[in-house]
């Protein structure tokens, strides 16, 4: 290993419980160390914390505003509250704001968080009709609402290639796919955030379809997507047909059959059919990543 200075331990207090963590670790690490279950949505362990969703906020004594626990580094002597009224309020509101504007039906944990914090997303009114021009909305301009309905990010399914589909009506804009496609993993930069504010969306340049774009179908965006907005075609079709059955699936870790890098793949198998391929986030070789062959090139064992 590269010679590193030994890390110092520092002590912080989580809800009155002292806990020692390494310098550089986050408040989320500290919370987890003392067993405080902290909700997260945009946090991904292979990516730099983006702290965009703000569902993980905690109250640091003496600070004017709440701190995102996923990214705030622990400092010696910090006193942290994870269940104060302010924290509960922010978590509830974040879940309300997301649930009322995004289809979270395939976001694991979302319903649980909403229930835990007593979110009442229906109080913002019925969902507004989808905006068909969402891909081209101009920054700084919007149609004035009448308040009778609640705006959402609903948009048409993007179904433009054989391998995966994109349903941005389910997107919480956590930036993880952009970071994974970009400088943190794949460095292909096929997608970015376009537009601004509530109209911000994940987009290729000029919203061109993926086959025209730089996309190399590594699927590393699917791997990090916390909402199911990005989905294997096989999973999408099984779900549409009502045959998606996670209880009947096995997940087997093995090695990709192609080049000599030795990428770890996890085969999700339902009734002897590979329905999805993931990669372990905690393995040094891949860190959750694969290329198109490892992610999608498994058909040869199914069609012979």
């Amino acid at each position: 290993m590269t010679p590193l200075l030994p890390k110092r331990m520092i002590e912080v207090e989580i809800d009155g419980t002292p806990v020692r963590v390494f310098e550089g670790q986050t408040l989320l690490d500290a919370c987890r160390k003392v067993g405080v279950d902290t909700p997260t949505l945009c946090y991904g362990d292979t990516l730099e914390p983006k702290n965009a969703c703000r569902v993980c906020v905690v109250e640091v004594e003496g600070a004017r505003v709440l701190a995102p626990s996923c990214s705030r580094k622990a400092e010696a002597g910090m006193k942290v509250r994870t269940d104060s009224d302010r924290v509960r309020h922010s978590r509830r509101m974040v879940m309300e704001l997301l649930t009322s504007s995004v289809d979270l039906s395939t976001t694991p944990d979302a319903a649980g968080y909403a229930e835990r914090y007593d979110a009442r997303p229906d109080r913002y009114g019925p969902a507004a009709a989808p905006n068909p021009d969402r891909d081209r909305l101009r920054a700084g301009h919007h149609v004035e609402p009448d308040g009778d309905t609640a705006a959402t990010v609903a948009s048409a399914l993007k179904d433009d290639n054989e391998l995966y589909v994109r349903d941005y009506g389910k997107c919480i804009l956590c930036y993880k796919c952009v970071d994974a496609c970009g400088s943190q993993h794949q460095n292909t930069f096929a997608i970015s955030i376009a537009g601004r504010g509530f109209d911000a969306r994940i987009s290729t340049e000029h919203a061109i379809e993926l086959p025209e774009s730089a996309c190399v179908y590594c699927g590393n965006c699917i791997q990090v997507c916390p909402t199911g907005a990005l989905m294997f075609r096989s999973e999408h079709e099984h779900r549409a047909a009502g045959t998606w059955d996670e209880a009947a699936q096995t997940v087997t870790k093995t090695i990709c059959p192609y080049c000599g890098v030795g990428c770890n793949v996890e085969l999700h198998v339902q009734h002897n059919e590979i329905v999805k391929v993931t990669s372990p986030a905690d393995h040094d070789v891949t860190r959750g990543n694969l290329c198109i062959k490892g992610r999608f090139g498994f058909q040869h064992v199914q069609r012979r």
């Binding site: 096995t250 087997t252 870790k253 093995t254 090695i255 990709c256 059959p257 000599g260 890098v261 030795g262 770890n264 085969l267 198998v269 002897n272 590979i274 070789v285 498994f298 064992v301 199914q302």
Partner: peptide, 23 residues
């Protein structure tokens, strides 16, 4: 060999890893 049998492979950093039967 990578998903219908058990065994090992070695990668370019000399890492011996397990392949496993999934199908």
């Amino acid at each position: 060999s990578w998903c219908e049998t058990e065994g090992t492979v070695t990668n370019s950093e000399r890492r011996v890893q397990r392949v496993r039967k999934a199908l």
